[in-house]
């Protein structure tokens, strides 16, 4: 299964770009030779090319500072690559502000610190997922009845229907993260990006959040790209693991292929 490409044979992969679905799968986001250097000179990502396919839970695995968050954020261009291209499912390179906004409406994100508005209710926070679907002026008025029903269905999907009117800052970390998932679902995304979604949660909440993300991927057929630093969770929930170390992709395969050798490449020599 050819999903990532190294620097040397990027050209070959590029020629295959027009060939369409890869093994019956559609790619949702493709990145080519993407490189990120931060203004202070830190090289967060060395040039790398990856395809993200539908119907899969992809885990970005690696220690802190390996470039997981940076890679994830280039996928919706919250971080703009210093060089290289980010393409959507239609092979369109995302360049203009309009392109990027359109791409983001279909690319939902879940954050480590939940990034909810604490003084608003769960329902209000979920409705914020609909922002990209409307103009500025429209969003100054209440959302439609249909969208409120959708938001309630999204809360129901993460088993928080009964907390619809609870202020988010009165909820536990795990519940807040599930509101974040509901907000992502309300966006009707083509792909969900989750940046260390369980890094600040206890094991049982973590398990619940990751189980829900995997169920959403399989049942609603929304691909999920999730960055994690816990190996056990990666093995348990991933269909595909991309191992990152110092901004390089050092592993890209199914979880079963994750040998001791591959682990030391990701986490360094023991």
């Amino acid at each position: 299964m050819l999903q990532s490409v190294d620097d040397e044979w990027t050209g070959e992969q590029a020629r295959n770009d027009g060939a369409g679905p890869d093994g019956g799968r559609n790619s949702i986001i493709r990145i080519r030779d993407v490189e990120v250097v931060y203004p202070d000179g830190t090289r967060a990502l060395h040039p790398l090319s990856l395809d993200f396919m539908d119907d899969q839970v992809t885990v970005l695995l690696g220690p802190s500072g390996a470039g997981k968050s940076t890679l994830l954020r280039t996928l919706n261009l919250l971080v703009s690559p210093t060089a290289g291209r980010v393409m959507n499912g239609e092979n369109r390179t995302l360049e203009t502000a309009g392109d990027i906004r359109g791409h983001r409406t279909k690319t939902a994100m879940i954050f480590q610190q939940h990034q909810l508005i604490g003084r608003q209710t769960a329902l209000q926070n979920v409705l914020a997922g609909r922002l990209g679907k409307h103009t500025f002026w429209r969003t100054l008025w209440p959302f439609s009845e249909r969208e409120r029903r959708l938001a309630l269905a999204c809360l129901d999907r993460v088993s928080l229907f009964d907390r619809a009117f609870s202020r988010c800052d009165s909820m536990s970390g795990g519940q807040q993260q599930r509101v974040g998932i509901a907000r992502a679902l309300a966006q009707h995304p083509k792909i969900i990006l989750a940046d260390e979604p369980v890094a600040s949660l206890d094991p049982s909440s973590s398990h619940r959040v990751l189980t829900q993300l995997r169920a959403i991927c399989k049942e609603d057929r929304i691909p999920v790209v999730v960055s994690l630093h816990q190996l056990e969770y990666a093995r348990e929930f991933a269909d595909r693991i991309i191992g990152l170390s110092n901004g390089h992709v050092v592993f890209d395969d199914v979880p079963d292929a994750l040998t001791e050798g591959a682990l030391s490449a990701i986490y360094g020599e023991p």
Partner: peptide, 18 residues
Amino acid sequence: MIDPLAISQTPDRVNQLL
């Protein structure tokens, strides 16, 4: 895609919340 009608709650409960 989440359908607003695909909900495990009864219609009455949803309408009550709305």
